[in-house]
Design a protein around this nucleic acid. Structure first.
Lengths: 162, 162
DNA sequence: GAAGTGTTGGTGACATGTCAACAGAGGGGT
DNA sequence: ACCCCTCTGTTGACATGTCACCAACACTTC
């Protein structure tokens, strides 16, 4: 027998049992449908994409409404490239702005504009309602607790493994 | 429009409480990290993308390894356009093929090729191992059951609402 | 201080997904 | 046979994400 991390996959794959397979497929299907619905609601209610909302949300939660690009990218789990591209588009729509960084001539500071703040403040109640309607309000307290616990564990595993 | 049934959002938004917010954020974060990891493992082990794997997997689970495009698109929750584009790319790589439909001159039938079958058969054990390692094996039996139950409910809600 | 190393943002080429429009068939009612 | 409506799959334009690479800068070491 092999002692490698995955074991001898070719001759002895450890397939998922019935319950595990149902859970995994269910998760994938929920994920696909839920994302789609949340995205649609957000676009219809506020004209924002998921990505837009996340950026605005993270910026609005900081004290002076501004963050370094790398810092923002890290907390959002985005690549710097992706964020840079997306910020360019949001900047053209007036939702965010770039300031020069005092101490470091390379760095640019991302600032939430007035329009951006208004956008996120108007979008938030609708977004929360959407999340409730399609997910949170459908779950029992026990399921909410379970989701919290298991997601925390999976996230920890994936984060430390890096 | 979509604001019906949400109540008076502007004056009375029902924000998420502490536990709900943790569960929602945890879910979103898990979703992002898990997708990334599974996608990377799949690409490294098999040279396939998530999308490739899903297509091959669905095709291989049918009896004569062939499906109408619309049928495949429906089960995968994909748009016909997306599937058509993606099949064109997979066809160029020799993983699938298109056949003319006997009874319906409009339709095209998607066929799993020999190479496609080999690809999914080689990829599957690694993929299952990846899913186990980063998700399933981290959960208790109760959590698996909870995930199954809640995802089933959310999927049902989103499906019937359409 | 010169060179080597790593960090920060940005850019272009490319892969992928979305949307609207389309041509070509089907299929029912008359 | 004809009109009308629907369905099928494809396509092109466009939005978005990924990847590899770059220029500017900071930090160490010699």
């Amino acid at each position: 027998m092999s002692t490698e991390g995955y074991g001898d996959l070719v001759t002895e794959p450890r397939w998922l049992d019935e319950k595990q397979a149902r859970a995994w497929r269910g998760y994938r299907r929920m994920r696909a449908l839920l994302d789609l619905q949340i995205t649609r609601d957000l676009a219809a209610d506020s004209g924002l994409s998921d990505a837009d909302y996340d950026v605005l949300s993270n910026l609005s939660e900081t004290s002076p409404h501004r963050l370094r690009l790398t810092e923002l990218a890290t907390t959002m789990l985005w690549s710097k490239s992706r964020l840079s591209h997306h910020l360019t588009r949001m900047q053209q729509r007036g939702l965010v702005d770039r300031e020069e960084c005092a101490g470091d001539a390379r760095g640019s500071i991302i600032v939430l504009t007035e329009a951006g703040l208004r956008a996120i403040e108007e979008a938030a109640p609708h977004h929360v309602a959407s999340v409730r309607k399609h997910m949170i309000d459908l779950l029992t307290d026990e399921e909410i607790a379970a989701l919290d616990a298991l997601s925390r564990r999976v996230v920890a595993h994936l984060t430390e493994a890096a």
